[in-house]
């Protein structure tokens, strides 16, 4: 119990004094996860639109698969990406292992099922008459997709925020692909793991509280969008 209270105090201390190491780690966490979500969204939202709005064989199975992958364990994704990026793997020559770029790629893969799947759900919430109206007014396929995504924009933004939250708080990919290298790939989650293994429970708690704080802000924004 003492650790939790001391952890809160330490968290306040670290934030108020703008502790440089903590600031750096936090900034890096936000940057990597934000980049991952941004790039993933550019691909996944239109992809979700295509999947939902086209008819094709095996559509149902595909959507089921995507939804199953929501809960993919982060270490499993980490392992998968590691095997791809390792020197002995197919993309080893790109030298992306143990780099922030590699972490971005790993997190993109991690959150893509969520982004695609929740986009599909969001689009399903749009009235089918919207589609007919858009088509009858002369929209072609990509214009129809864009229109429906625009109609569902609040739910789609909510999906992006959820993806961001997941990327920010995951540790499996960050650890395996990033390697927790000081001043280079160390982020909040991997720092928490390190501090814990060192027995620095108060610092670990403090970092955790900072991470929770960021998640809280995210979730508050989320409720605003979902409330619409």
């Amino acid at each position: 119990m003492e650790e939790i209270w001391n952890g809160i105090l330490r968290a306040v201390e670290l934030i108020v004094t703008l502790n440089p190491e903590v600031m750096e780690i936090t900034a890096r966490s936000l940057f990597i996860s934000f980049t991952a979500v941004f790039l993933a969204a550019i691909i996944d939202i239109p992809l979700g639109g295509l999947i939902e709005l086209r008819k094709f064989r095996g559509k149902r199975a595909l959507v089921d698969l995507i939804q199953t992958l929501y809960g993919l364990p982060t270490v499993t994704v980490g392992l998968l990406v590691f095997l791809l990026l390792s020197r002995s793997g197919p993309f080893g020559s790109l030298e992306l292992l143990y780099t922030p770029t590699g972490m971005v790629i790993g997190q993109m893969i991690l959150i893509s099922p969520i982004l695609i799947g929740l986009t599909i759900s969001a689009l399903r919430g749009v009235s089918p008459h919207i589609r007919d109206t858009a088509i009858s007014l002369g929209a072609d396929e990509s214009q129809v997709i864009r229109t429906i995504i625009k109609e569902a924009r609040f739910a789609v933004i909510a999906a992006v925020l959820i993806g961001f939250g997941r990327a920010l708080s995951e540790v499996g990919v960050a650890m395996m692909i990033g390697g927790n290298i000081r001043d280079y790939t160390r982020v909040l989650t991997t720092s928490i793991a390190l501090q814990t293994s060192m027995g620095n429970l108060e610092t670990s708690m403090a970092l955790g509280i900072i991470l929770i704080g960021i998640s809280m802000i995210l979730n508050l924004s989320l409720s605003r969008f979902q409330g619409r």
């Binding site: 650890m175 290298i181 000081r182 160390r186 293994s197």
Partner: peptide, 14 residues
């Protein structure tokens, strides 16, 4: 000098 902040196995892999 690379500070990996990692357990032994992960450090060896790196």
């Amino acid at each position: 000098y690379v500070d990996a902040g990692s357990p032994m196995g992960a450090t060896l892999i790196m």
